[in-house]
Computed example of a mutant assay.
Amino acid sequence: MYQEVIRLIERAGVAFPPLGNGVSQAAIENAETVLGFALPKSYKWWLLNYGGGQIQADIVYGLDENGMGRPDLIELAHMNEQDGLYDRERIVFCMGNAENFVFDTENLDKNGEYAILLHEISGGEEIPYAASFVEFLQRRITEVCRA
C-alpha cells in the first residue's frame, strides 16, 4: 500500500521532502504525549518518511522537530483549541483554501486509523472523506494534482 503512495507522490511532483527525510520516532512519541492520543498508523509512517509538506496549495501539517518554523500539527491543534475553532476530537492536519481536513479522533478503527473528515469552512459542514490518512493522500493528490 505504501509503495503505491510513494509512486503517486513522486509521479505527481507533490511538495514533500525527499523520501526518508521525515521526523524521528521520538518526535512522534512526543507529539502523541502532548496531544494525549495516538496518531494514526499511516500518518506516523508519513511523518517518519516525509515529515510535512504541501499538495498544491494544501498545507499538510507535520511536526516541526527542529524548530525551523515548519507547519506543526501540535501548534495548530493548540491554536485551534484556544480559539474555539476545533476541540480535541477534531484535529486539523491539512488546510486548503476553502476546506480543512481533520482526524476524527473519536473513531479509531482496528487498524489504528482515524476517519478523515472534510470540513467546508464556509458552510461548517463535515463530510466523510477517507477511511485513513494514506487513503486521504491517494485521493487528495489524485484530485488536486490530476495524477
Results as ranks from 00 to 15, higher is better:
3 Q>W: 09
4 E>K: 15
6 I>W: 12
6 I>S: 03
6 I>E: 15
7 R>Q: 13
7 R>A: 12
9 I>V: 06
9 I>T: 03
10 E>D: 11
12 A>S: 10
12 A>T: 01
13 G>H: 05
15 A>V: 11
15 A>I: 11
19 L>V: 04
20 G>P: 05
20 G>N: 06
20 G>E: 01
21 N>H: 13
22 G>M: 02
22 G>F: 06
25 Q>Y: 13
25 Q>I: 07
28 I>E: 00
28 I>C: 05
30 N>I: 05
30 N>D: 03
30 N>E: 12
31 A>Q: 07
31 A>T: 01
31 A>N: 00
32 E>H: 14
33 T>R: 15
33 T>V: 08
35 L>P: 15
36 G>R: 08
37 F>D: 00
39 L>C: 11
39 L>T: 00
39 L>R: 08
40 P>V: 01
41 K>C: 06
41 K>I: 05
43 Y>M: 15
44 K>H: 03
45 W>C: 09
45 W>S: 11
45 W>H: 13
45 W>A: 07
45 W>F: 10
46 W>T: 06
48 L>Q: 00
49 N>D: 04
51 G>D: 14
52 G>F: 09
53 G>T: 09
54 Q>C: 13
56 Q>V: 02
59 I>V: 06
60 V>Q: 15
61 Y>N: 09
63 L>W: 12
65 E>K: 14
66 N>V: 01
67 G>H: 01
68 M>D: 10
68 M>G: 15
69 G>V: 07
71 P>L: 03
71 P>G: 03
73 L>N: 01
73 L>V: 08
74 I>P: 13
74 I>N: 00
75 E>Y: 08
75 E>K: 15
76 L>I: 03
76 L>Q: 08
79 M>T: 04
79 M>N: 10
82 Q>Y: 06
83 D>M: 11
83 D>Y: 03
86 Y>A: 06
87 D>R: 05
88 R>A: 02
91 I>A: 02
92 V>L: 11
93 F>Y: 08
94 C>H: 15
94 C>W: 14
94 C>L: 13
95 M>E: 12
96 G>M: 01
96 G>T: 05
96 G>A: 05
98 A>V: 12
99 E>P: 06
100 N>G: 12
102 V>F: 10
103 F>G: 04
103 F>Y: 05
103 F>A: 00
103 F>V: 07
104 D>Y: 04
104 D>E: 00
105 T>P: 09
105 T>G: 05
106 E>P: 07
106 E>G: 10
106 E>R: 15
107 N>D: 07
109 D>V: 01
110 K>Y: 08
110 K>Q: 11
110 K>W: 13
110 K>T: 08
113 E>C: 01
114 Y>L: 07
115 A>M: 12
117 L>C: 07
119 H>P: 06
119 H>T: 02
120 E>M: 09
121 I>H: 14
121 I>V: 04
122 S>T: 08
122 S>V: 02
123 G>C: 10
123 G>D: 12
124 G>T: 01
124 G>S: 04
126 E>H: 15
127 I>P: 10
130 A>C: 08
131 A>F: 08
132 S>A: 08
132 S>C: 00
134 V>D: 15
135 E>F: 01
136 F>N: 14
137 L>A: 08
137 L>K: 15
137 L>P: 13
138 Q>F: 02
139 R>G: 06
140 R>M: 03
140 R>Q: 12
141 I>Y: 07
141 I>A: 11
143 E>D: 05
144 V>P: 12
144 V>D: 13
145 C>R: 04
147 A>M: 02
